[in-house]
Design a protein around this nucleic acid. Sequence first.
DNA 1: GCCAACGTTGGC
DNA 2: GCCAACGTTGGC
Length: 152
Amino acid sequence: MNYWLLKSDPQEFSWTDLKNSKNQCTHWGGVRNYQARNLLREMKKNDLAFFYHSSTKPQTIEGIVKITAEAYPDPTQFDRNSDHYDPQSTTGDPRWVMVDIEITRDLTAPITRDELQNHPKLEKIILFKNSRLSVQPLKAAEWRMILAMRRI
DNA sequence: GCCAACGTTGGC
DNA sequence: GCCAACGTTGGC
């Protein structure tokens, strides 16, 4: 079992959008960064991830999702009309992938970036090293410490 | 709002 | 293959 943090700009796709999606499930893709792509490929079914709102104030962990489908080609890379269109990617050798996620639980309240930063033992998480990375792995211990910030 | 950091692109 | 230039993101 692996643990992750997935960043989403709520103006593009928010936790509320996910809640309102059919079966509270969605494709999670549009990633066009190799490091993030490689991490997506490492995801296993039933891995858990925090859903994190980026590019907003305050930035927050909104809830927990489960990986329901492992990496498969992201169709938007072949769609000329998509913002994520990549003319250099081919169906024979697709460059970008997505996974499927589904809500497993809400938090009692969102956890802000400030709260994470003030936690004495979370200074090593990737969020504070490379805050721009849109898919971030978390150690099991880190995951538990973050969860413990909300008694759920 | 500014600017540093990051990742990508392109000229050579 | 190097590195300058560029666009974007995010910390402050």
